[in-house]
Nucleic acid binder design. Structure first.
Lengths: 254, 254
DNA sequence: CGAACGCTTGATTCACATCAAAGTTAGTGG
DNA sequence: CCACTAACTTTGATGTGAATCAAGCGTTCG
């Protein structure tokens, strides 16, 4: 399953070309495109079989154990990532330690596109995760000679921007209960679209992660979930929730 | 000046091909690229003189009086815009009327790129404004055959995404005073980069606009500005502010 | 001049944060 | 496998920053 825990070789080997990288190279010969489940959903779907053969050799499939880092804010942005398994949190830190999670990446999501030479946010694995990791220079050179891929990346960025703006509305103008409702529904919808289709919504991230994504405190998240459960809108289960009154939640999130 | 008020022919003529558009076509022969001051800052800067000749004929330069609409959320996204003069507010509305401004567009900014067939936010002029307006189909066809332009648009979208994520941190984790400080500095920096270089920061938008951008109320915006003025960090002047203690503001915004 | 609008200021309220503690789950080592 | 510990989550009591409610004060404009 896409969000199942898994353990990679420990201690992890450094990824090719990056001694600071916390991951473990799964196959030195390149990305594992042949059996890749999320390829149809990913940016690589615009490449034909011939092109994929070149492309997969640009990078490597890398495994990350839960809580390990893919990359960090302000460090040199020398790689880009295509997440294939697991969940990754993307966040920015303020100097005093306050944290804002700017998104949870799911399989098929593309990470690390930076405007500047350094990453503008940090990324680490919520669950164990697998990503195709490409040296930035190689990737950009390939994109420059493959307009179809560029177009697909632009689509992805535009979509991200739409999500980001919706998150601004949530953070700027919604109540705690509305934030939680929108979060649960939004996550379910995204998982649904990538084929993860279940009556139970797994929440592999901590309450603190949810709080830092929604601009709340851990206590408010906990209380609000409890309230929704008391109202029989959701059922809290180990590691997630089940939806009981979808319409009620959707009204709150509207 | 870029943010100077100006009046366009009233009643305004509908833009070519769009009877609902609030603007007034300034030159039926196409965009006014020759004397365009912001072209070096805009996406068109990647086009050579030959390409510009084709490109400018795809659209028209359109003038908008202050408070008129360029486009609205949920309506068919049949045009894209390149702002050349004035300021435009971009916002999303919730069903009950709450508003979140997701950005203030300045000259050089590109608007209306949508992932879906409808606009995901509304745009209207804060000051009077001028934009090159392109029918979406024509624009997209041209982009498809001009990878350099696509690359430039992708860069612009990536930059927007960076700004959007910074705004998420602001909305989710910053105090009212920090928000105001970050807003003033951010706007100054953006104006500076497009050559609008002045000791006084003009604030052509209303207090309500600032509040809806920062996730605050109009009263809190007013009080916080007053407090900063009392502390001699800024000076409030008609239509804007002057910076007195830049370092203090920068600490707050850090 | 009067009406309307936008902005400021003051008094009060409230949603969520903070502080505090108990309960629960997960991880570790014997 | 269980005891012990650490980490996470929930729940309760209290505090507070910003919202709301409510005037008043310029400016602008018909």
């Amino acid at each position: 399953m896409l969000l199942q825990p898994k353990k990679f070789k420990d201690p992890v080997e450094p990824a090719f070309g990056d001694p600071n990288c916390g991951g473990c190279v799964l196959d030195p010969s390149g990305c594992l495109c042949d059996g890749c489940k999320i390829r149809p959903l990913s940016v690589c779907n615009v490449l034909n079989e011939q092109e994929i053969k070149t492309f997969r050799n640009l990078g490597h499939s890398v495994g990350y154990n839960a809580k390990t880092s893919l990359f960090s804010q302000d460090e040199e942005a020398d790689a880009v990532f295509n997440l294939t398994e697991g969940m990754v949190r993307l966040y920015k830190l303020l100097p005093d330690g306050r944290r804002q999670i700017v998104g949870f990446a799911l399989p098929g999501d593309f990470l690390g596109l930076a405007f500047e030479p350094t990453y503008s946010f940090s990324a680490d694995a919520v669950t164990s995760a697998v990503a195709c990791r490409f040296p930035r220079k190689l990737f950009e050179a390939y994109v420059d000679q493959t307009p179809a891929l560029l177009k697909r990346l632009h689509e992805a960025a535009t979509y991200e921007l739409t999500l980001a703006r919706e998150q601004m509305v949530l953070l700027g103008r919604r109540s705690a209960e509305e934030r939680i409702a929108a979060f649960l529904i939004g996550l379910r919808d995204r998982l649904y679209r990538i084929g993860y289709h279940s009556p139970t919504l797994r929440l592999p991230m901590s309450r603190q992660d949810i709080a830092d994504f929604l601009g709340l405190t851990i206590e408010t998240v906990s209380r609000t979930l409890t309230k929704l459960a008391k109202d029989k809108v959701i059922l809290i289960v180990p590691d997630g929730i089940r939806f009981l009154k979808m319409e009620k939640l959707e009204t709150l999130a509207a």
